[in-house]
């Protein structure tokens, strides 16, 4: 039963992510991405990571994708011109795309095959409950965690600064 559900959800995630990049309509893309996140959340749940599943739905499903939808609607991208969604894949960009994908695949397999061999990796069983996760996050991994949050904060500020500068230039012109 659980195995069947896992394969179903895996299939759903793969199909969903393919639809994200191939569909013409941005709204369909956003919705397929949402579906993919759901499948992933279910897989987390099957693996026993309740908190991760809920966080996935809450953060990605409930907030990020709503923002995506909001932006798509605000810019009225819902009615695209005819043409394939794959148009951006021209010959110059293709090698980079393949290189990036190959890298990702290698990394994934390395992770799967050499489970726990990466530096600082934790046994999966040690982060099943929220308490365990909190212990890891605010205990042994406090520094990387805070560093990541500062990095994200910096990125957010940088985005605002970049967006703002472009606008003032446009006004001057």
């Amino acid at each position: 039963m659980a195995n069947l559900l896992f394969y179903l959800m895996g299939l759903g995630a793969v199909i969903g992510s393919l639809l994200v990049v191939t569909s013409k309509n941005p709204i369909t893309s956003v919705l397929s991405l949402l579906g993919t996140f759901f499948c992933l959340a279910t897989i987390y749940l099957l693996a026993g990571f309740q908190f991760l599943a809920a966080a996935q739905i809450l953060v990605y499903g409930g907030a990020i994708m709503v923002l995506f939808l909001f932006v798509v609607m605000l810019l009225n991208l819902g009615h695209p011109e005819e043409g394939s969604g794959l148009e951006f894949m021209n010959k110059r960009r293709m090698p980079f795309a393949f290189a990036a994908s190959a890298m990702l695949i290698v990394l994934t397999f390395a992770g799967v095959l050499g489970q726990g061999s990466a530096p600082g990796a934790v046994e999966l069983a040690h982060m099943a409950t929220i308490g365990d996760l909190a212990g890891l996050m605010f205990g042994s991994f406090l520094l990387p965690f805070e560093a990541a949050s500062i990095l994200l904060m910096g990125a957010a500020v940088a985005v605002i600064v970049l967006a703002k500068r472009e606008r003032t230039q446009a006004v001057e012109r």
Binding site: A54, G61, G62
Partner: peptide, 14 residues
Amino acid sequence: LDIGALWVVAIGGL
């Protein structure tokens, strides 16, 4: 669920 409070917010938010 162990994550009851989170579940309501996550699913209700959908």
